[in-house]
């Protein structure tokens, strides 16, 4: 069964760019480049590992259907 589709949002003010989300993403759907946090929806498999791993709770998974 596929996981319910989500989009990952960052609360930029909370994020330290520590890269924990990048490390746990199985699909390289999150990268940090030039001090910028970037999310690529087309690569995301909605596992939400990034949300779990974030040390500060800066990431949220937003259900796509409810958008």
């Amino acid at each position: 069964m596929p996981l319910p589709k989500v989009k990952i949002d960052v609360i930029r003010e909370k994020c330290y760019l520590c890269g924990s989300c990048v490390a746990v993403c199985p699909k390289e759907a999150i990268i940090i480049e030039n001090d910028e946090w970037m999310f690529f929806q087309e690569k995301c498999i909605s596992c939400k590992f990034c949300v779990l791993a974030c040390p500060v709770g800066a990431l949220n998974a937003i259900p796509l259907e409810e958008e």
């Binding site: 924990s20 746990v24 199985p26 590992f49 791993a53 040390p55 500060v56």
Partner: peptide, 11 residues
């Protein structure tokens, strides 16, 4: 690739 249970989250 590092699944979240193989990572320690630190603050």
């Amino acid at each position: 690739f590092l699944p979240p249970h193989e990572l320690d989250s630190a603050y």
